[in-house]
């Protein structure tokens, strides 16, 4: 081969994908930093500096959305990780009907979020919903799942857990399968209990799966919109608003600059929370 031969892997293979990605993802992302500093109606822009961000951090309903986003993301991500791992351990322990159970737990992941949201909206109906009728049947008081301002966000997080825990379980099952059974056998010979085996072998060795689950669920939790929109629309009042629903509401109201500022804040929030977390998790993995 001559020295200056063309590579058989030309860069123009990247061109069609790059054109779409740049035009519809990169350009809007970069432009959002400019538009977030303006009052904007899609045709004219007026530069107003940090005014949108100041409004975001000042108005109770907007800052509330920011706080809720963090609560929602941490809560859904944490519960999916813990319950996902426990379910995965349970479903790889040779239970009866284990394959069927995996299927049942995983299926909600594939179902339309809007369909799930509407179904649970009716199941959580304050007076007629099956959930409250069930509570009443065993003598417990009815709960305002989605109608109580202090509870609505957590009820949506619970639905999110129901829908998403199957994915975490599936990822953990794949992670558990890559742990050599020799470790467990050696531990058993040394007399380690089940709980010791879980803490000393399973948890450390399943770490790559944990990183995937935490990162994925944290990002999707921070960006979560459709489930909240299908159940509470951010209500009652603004009690279950998150950044993504605030962005949509400001967009509907025609405050495009403010809406875009919300997008920039969401972007920064993900960068601030997820980047250090993944760096830290990958670093501690390398140390071991």
């Amino acid at each position: 081969m001559s020295a200056r031969q063309r590579s058989p892997y030309p860069y123009w293979f990247i061109a069609p994908a790059a054109a779409i990605y740049i035009a519809l993802f990169l350009v809007p992302t970069i432009a959002s930093f400019w538009f977030s500093l303006t009052r904007w109606d899609l045709f004219t822009t007026e530069f107003i500096g940090m005014e949108n961000f100041r409004q975001f951090l000042k108005e109770p309903q907007l800052i509330n959305g920011l706080v809720n986003t963090v609560i929602y993301a941490v809560l859904t991500s944490g519960t999916k990780t813990v319950i996902g791992l426990l379910l995965a351990v349970l479903l790889t322990s040779g239970l009866y009907a284990q394959g069927f159970l995996r299927t049942v737990i995983f299926f909600p992941v594939l179902v339309s979020t809007i369909g799930v949201g509407i179904t649970f909206f009716e199941l959580m109906h304050p007076t007629k919903g099956a959930l409250n009728l069930g509570l009443a049947a065993i003598g417990l008081p009815k709960v305002g799942w989605l109608t109580s301002p202090s509870l609505a966000l957590y009820s949506v997080a619970l639905i999110d857990l129901w829908k998403g825990v199957g994915l975490a379980t599936l990822i953990y099952i794949a992670g558990l399968a890559s742990i050599s059974p020799d470790y467990y056998e050696a531990a058993r010979i040394d007399g380690a209990t089940r709980i010791q085996q879980f803490r000393r072998i399973t948890v450390p060795l399943v770490r790559p799966a944990t990183i995937t689950v935490v990162t994925l669920s944290l990002i999707s939790g921070l960006r979560s919109f459709d489930l909240i929109w299908a159940t509470t629309k951010g209500g009652p009042g603004f009690s279950s608003d998150v950044l993504a629903s605030v962005i949509y509401k400001q967009y509907q109201a025609g405050f495009y600059g403010l809406s875009t500022a919300g997008n920039v804040i969401l972007f920064l929030l993900i960068a601030v929370l997820v980047l250090p977390l993944t760096l830290w998790m990958n670093r501690t993995e390398a140390d071991q």
């Binding site: 519809l24 992302t29 899609l42 962005i247 809406s259 875009t260 997008n263 969401l266």
Partner: peptide
């Protein structure tokens, strides 16, 4: 592309331009 949330209104602005 996996991490960054899409900037919604600027995307509409680009789509309108195209």
């Amino acid at each position: 592309g996996l991490m960054i949330p899409p900037a919604v209104v600027p995307t509409i602005w680009v789509l309108q331009g195209l």
